[in-house]
Each structure stands twice: as structure tokens, then as C-alpha cells.
Nucleic acid binder design. Structure first.
Lengths: 225, 225
DNA sequence: TTCTGATTTTACACTTCTGTAATAACCTGT
DNA sequence: ACAGGTTATTACAGAAGTGTAAAATCAGAA
């Protein structure tokens, strides 16, 4: 989620529109007040912040963002109104992650956003979360979030789920599944898999229904409903 | 407390006046002599230092400040009299934290002061103290405060806690943890890590409960309750 | 050196997870 | 509806993993 703080309606709308059409989710705010209100509920991934704003100006907003532990890690791109201000603002070094001098093209904006996000989120972190709708398997935390609520999974459950999520739509025979989760040299009953599937389905709640039984073949996790 | 060293009475007074009206506490000194006298008793947060002064000139003062352990960490903003001097002074790189070319507006002065303080404090204070609710790990003091009460931690305990606090929510396998804290490879059967986790949990009191065991994986410190 | 406190190891109790078997429920084609 | 095959569910014993006390060892200060 990317937030654009910009008082000019035209500019803000085109920013939001462009971002929403480039694979991001964006939302616009016209002033500091609405930004602070929204921050109570959600923390965006990145903020695109105009310097000239009606109430707090952008610099004050940036300052406040950087002061609060909850918000100080949100990357910020500052947009300056005039070319002249550019160097001055940069010189101040208020902790913005990048700067855009107006007027800027939308493609430039997008590539700056991408660059900042790339810098911010190390690959390993992005790759360590597997998502499926609102089901998140966080490998670093070794934890599953179901509708944002953390749920503890045992190691085996976790591994089976990981296998399913990494191979959505694919059927796994009990043998194959055993081989992949338990390891090549493990010998056990194929009924054991049924057992784990059962607990997995239970813990997954509504997402449990996505694990389908493929009669006389094995199990599959559906790609979609 | 910000100190302004400036021989011109008008300028000095307006600087002090402005700072006192922008949320700072400021005091003025007209020469090096009075500065050194005052430094005997107090260390300011920041010094705004004019280059042209009657006795010692600003450059000499800056050098002396940087030589003494007691004063070398005070951030200094240099004010240059003439535009031409600006680059020259910067080029010398005597360790000033920022530069102001006269004539400068008071608003510019204030934002430079703020910027320098912000840049300074994070490094020195914010980053040397890791907080988690009312649990503070003070790296400089190598000490932990639990609900503001200092508690002695052994080195290993301290390092494990630091690792956890710097990576909240993340699971560490015993191997990884051992490698990161001990710097050696972990020997499989050893209960050493468990042992330290036990004492850590105990010493942390109620915060000990945030250290969760992730069965067959390792340990994790929860992000929240 | 001796002493002290930190660290590691050991051994075992304890907890939690997992595999299995037995049984119930289910599906599918006749 | 029934038979035959497949899957779901349950309960529990055993395995695996963890917590803890106490003893042994180590390292640095006096």
C-alpha cells in the first residue's frame, strides 16, 4: 500500500491512478490531518509526500513520521514544488529516502517508488512470505497468519502447508508428499498423511476448504475458490 | 541547550532570541574566552560558531573542541562571514556538522539546527538504546532496564537479548543463534542455548514470556503480546 | 595462584508432537 | 441400496524435543 499526500487533486489522482495500474495499491490524502487519521489504523509500505501542503507542510510531516517508532521506518519520497527547493531540501537531510523534483513524469515516479521499495525490503524478506489471499506463511517467523491473526503450526503442518502454497493447484500423492516433507529415506504409513491433512484443514479454518481430496490420487490445494 | 558564539551583538541576540522562541534553550557568548569558561561547568547540545572572532578565531575553537574528549561530541554548525570563505572552510573539513553562509535567515538557521540535532541524537542515543515496551537495552552502558530498574545481564544473555530485540518476531534456530552470538558453529546435542534462554527468561521477568519456543525450530521473541 | 562468577555439560523429568491402528464415514459404479 | 474401495476421525503409545537442576569446567580478577 502506497500513500500519496498531495493537495492538488489532479496530481494526486493521477499519481494514485498510475500506481494502481502498475501493480501497486495506492491511496491519496490531501492533507496532514487525514494522513494522521489513517495512520492510526494502517501503516503503508511507502509514502509519497509533497512539500507544499495547506496545514502542516511536508517537512513537518516528515519530521513527525521520523519521530514515531511506529512510522519511522516507512520509506518516504519527497516531492518538491520548485526546482530551486530541491537542493535545499536534500541538503537538510531530514531522512527522506528519495526526492522528486516537480514537474515529474509518472514513469519516473514509478521507477523511484520501485527503487526505494527494492532498497528497503531485502529480497530475503519479500521471499520469506508466501501469501494466498489473506493467508500468510511467514518463513522467517515460522508462523502462519490467518486473516492477520497469528496461528501456531507444528513443524510438519507448516511444511505441508508450505509445499501446498508453493505448488498451488498441483496434486500430491501421499507417497510424493511423504517424500517431500518427511524426507527420502523415511518409511511410514500413508494414512499418516491423512491425519496431518485433517489437522491442517482444521487449523486453516475457511482456508482448509481449499485443500481438496483427489480420490484415489492424493491431495491438492486449489488455486482459487 | 544551544550556544551561539558570535561577536556581533545584534546578530548574537537575534540568534538567541529566535532559538529561544522555537522550542530550544539558547545562550550567547561573544568570544572564545567566555566559551571555555562556560564549558567548565556545562556541555551544550550544540554550538553555533562564527568563524570571525576577536581572540581565537572560530577555526581554532573548533579544533580545540574536537581535541577534548569531553567536548568532541558536541555538534557544531559553523557560520561563515563571507560567501567566499564558505567553500574554503568546508574544504578544511574540521569536523563541523553543518555550515551556514552569512547572511542567513533565522528560519534557515533553525532548520539546520534541527537537522543536525536529529542527525546526531539518533546515532548517539536512539540507536544505542533498544526498547521494547518498558524494557530497555542500553548498549553503551551494557545494561538492561526492566521497568526502569537496572538489571545485570551477563554478556551472553545481553547479546542474545540484543539479537532478539533487533529481530522481533523472527525465529532463530539454535544453530543460527549460536553462530550469531558465539561466532562458532553449534554442536548438535548441546543444551547450552536452552540454558541461556532459561536464565534470560527468568531475568526478564514478565518480558520473559515474550520469548517463545518454536518446537523443532528454535526460539522467537514475539513482536507483541 | 586462588577465587569468583560465568558458561557449559550432563542427566533426567517433562511436554508436545507424531505415527499407527482401529473404526467410522464416505464415495462411486452397478 | 449395496459392495468394494477410499478417506476421515479418534485415541493413544511412543518418539522427539525441551526445561531445569546440579555438577563440572572455564576465564578473568585479585
Amino acid at each position: 500500500m502506497i500513500w500519496c499526500i498531495e493537495d492538488d487533486n489532479n496530481i494526486r489522482e493521477i499519481e494514485v491512478y498510475t500506481l494502481n495500474n502498475t501493480g501497486f495499491t495506492a491511496e491519496g490524502f490531501c492533507d496532514g490531518k487525514s494522513l494522521w487519521a489513517a495512520l492510526e489504523k494502517e501503516i503503508p509500505e511507502l509514502i509519497l509526500l509533497d512539500i507544499m501542503l495547506p496545514d502542516d507542510d511536508g517537512i513537518e510531516i516528515l519530521k513527525r513520521l521520523k519521530e514515531d517508532d511506529r512510522t519511522c521506518n516507512i520509506p518516504v519520497i519527497m516531492a518538491t514544488a520548485k526546482g530551486e527547493e530541491y537542493d535545499k531540501i536534500r541538503g537538510l537531510d531530514l531522512g527522506a529516502d528519495d526526492y522528486l523534483a516537480k514537474p515529474f513524469g509518472m514513469m519516473e515516479m514509478v521507477s523511484r517508488v520501485k527503487a526505494v521499495l527494492r532498497r528497503y525490503k531485502p529480497d530475503e524478506e519479500r521471499e520469506s512470505i508466501i501469501r494466498f489471499e489473506n493467508l500468510c506463511l511467514n518463513i522467517k517467523e515460522h508462523r502462519v497468519y490467518i486473516e492477520d491473526i497469528p496461528v501456531d503450526f507444528t513443524h510438519k503442518e507448516f511444511e505441508i502447508l508450505r509445499l501446498f502454497l508453493n505448488n498451488r493447484g498441483r496434486v500430491f500423492s501421499r507417497e510424493k508428499l511423504f517424500y517431500l516433507v518427511w524426507g527420502e529415506d523415511y518409511i511410514g504409513e500413508s494414512r499418516t498423511v491423512d491425519m496431518h491433512i485433517k489437522t491442517l484443514r482444521k487449523k486453516l479454518g475457511k482456508y482448509g476448504d481449499y485443500i481438496k481430496t483427489v480420490r484415489s490420487v492424493g491431495y491438492r490445494m486449489e488455486k482459487q475458490k
